[in-house]
Structure formats: C-alpha cells, structure tokens
Amino acid sequence: MDLNLIMYLIPSLIMFGCGVYGFITRKNMIAILISLELMLNSVDINFVVFNRYLFPAQQEGMFFTLFAIAIAAAETAVAIAIIINVYRAAKNVDINQITKMKF
C-alpha cells in the first residue's frame, strides 16, 4: 500500500486537536503538560512529512524539527520545575485549586 501525504497529515492534525482538547479540559497540570507535548509533536510530524513528500531535495524541515524537539525538551524541563515549585507551595497540582489571583 502506498502511503501518501494526507495519511500522515490527518493523524498529526488529530493529535494536535487532542492536545488542544486536553489543554482546555484537563485539571491536572502534568496532564496539561502532556497535552502540550502532543501539540508540539504533531507539529514536528507536519514538518517532516512536508519535507519528505513535497520538498525531498532539501533538508530544511528536518532541521527545523530537530531544533523544535530540543526547544520542546527545554520547555518541558522548565514547566516541570515550575510545577514542582507550585506543588511545594500549594501541596496541589490541580488547577482548580491554584486560583488565588483572579479578576
């Protein structure tokens, strides 16, 4: 069976949608972070697939993906450190409880 461009793009867009859905509905901050990772990874798939199928002569999308993975790793590290700090301060990572500052 031939795999074409659209067969990669649809799963990646579903992944992105799942990420957005999880970011909005989840209450646990770690789960929100996992949703964010889903979104970033689906973007990486997009870049690689576009590069492989549409512009195979060059490597720009691949290199962008490498950098995007590194940036995503740094983002996760910072976010987890901050979540641990929140847990120490509030003994909780439920975003319904982290609402001291409001309108």
């Binding site: 970011f23 901050m29 929100i32 972070l33 964010l36 983002e75 910072v78 976010a79 901050i82 979540i83 700090n85 929140v86 301060a89 509030a90 982290i98 001291k100 500052m101």
Partner: peptide, 9 residues
Amino acid sequence: HEAAAKYVL
C-alpha cells in the same frame, strides 16, 4: 509560583 505556572503553560 502561580503566575509562573500560568505564564509557562
């Protein structure tokens, strides 16, 4: 901490 969590997410 609360502000930082909101900002980074």
